[in-house]
Design a protein around this nucleic acid. Structure first.
Length: 136
DNA sequence: GCCAACGTTGGC
DNA sequence: GCCAACGTTGGC
């Protein structure tokens, strides 16, 4: 069964536009066990929100998992996980962290509860709610 | 620039 | 195996 995710990136380091320019990006360098477990649970075709941390603080687009179950190429020991993603579409309107925090039904999100988690899972209802926000 | 939340490290 | 100290992340 498909699942829904949220992946954070600092736009300074790797932005949505960078991903679009590349066409496909490898999501590696994750060194947190919970985030790594989420990476391992991703399946081909799963969708994820692309969130700009630090600058922007908003969800800017949707990506799809184009390759799942990779070993992180930046890990010499080969213990950590990675995936590849492709941009699917940009949101009509970015959804800000502020908007998310303002809604009680989204207060349970890993993004809110565990602000430092770089790869988070969303429930289907959370995914839908955010999509509806992006459509204004 | 500050601080809270975590994760990791190292002394015991 | 505990816990204090420290480093990092990320929001404010």
């Amino acid at each position: 069964m498909a699942r829904w995710w949220l992946m954070k990136s600092e736009p300074d380091a790797y932005s949505w536009d960078d991903l679009v320019a590349e066409g496909e990006g490898t999501w590696d360098g994750v060194r947190n066990h919970r985030a790594a477990n989420n990476l391992r649970a991703m399946e081909l075709g799963d969708q994820a929100f692309f969130y700009h941390s630090n600058i922007g603080l908003e969800i800017v687009g949707i990506v799809t998992i184009s390759v799942a179950g990779l070993t992180d190429p930046t890990d010499p020991e080969g213990k950590w996980a990675a995936v590849k993603v492709k941009p699917l579409r940009k949101l009509a309107k970015p959804v800000t962290l502020k908007q998310i925090k303002a809604l009680p039904e989204l207060a349970d999100m890993e993004l809110v509860r565990l602000s430092r988690l770089s790869v988070a899972e969303l429930r289907p209802d959370e995914w839908k709610k955010i999509l509806s926000l992006s459509e204004g």
